[in-house]
């Protein structure tokens, strides 16, 4: 199942068409991701990553919307557990 959590590109290494890679942050967890499939992606863009490959770019509104949904899910979960602080 692809959860499609958006990640923000922090750095890009232009090492060639097929090896283009970058550092992508998923809410603070930074992973090295292959960007060959998303030649249009730039620093600051949001991407969806599957098995280490960025497979799609997202516009900022779309990414923020998804992150908002994820946050809401966490909030509901906390409520159900009777906790009120997320972090």
């Amino acid at each position: 199942m692809c959860l499609a959590v958006p990640g923000k590109i922090l750095e890009i290494k232009e090492t060639g068409e097929l090896t283009r890679s970058g550092k992508v942050s998923f809410g603070g967890i930074v992973k090295e991701i292959n960007l060959a499939y998303t030649p249009e992606a730039n620093i600051g863009d949001y991407v969806i990553v599957h098995v280490g490959f960025a497979i799609s770019t997202l516009n900022e509104d779309e990414a923020k919307q998804t992150l908002k949904y994820l946050r809401e899910i966490t909030e509901i979960e906390m409520e159900l557990r009777g906790e009120n602080e997320i972090f």
């Binding site: 199942m1 692809c2 090896t19 890679s21 992973k31 090295e32 991701i33 292959n34 599957h50 098995v51 280490g52 490959f53």
Partner: peptide, 12 residues
């Protein structure tokens, strides 16, 4: 597997 994320990614 889904939890195989990042397997063989470059360079992860």
């Amino acid at each position: 597997p889904c939890h195989g994320c990042a397997t063989h990614s470059l360079p992860g």
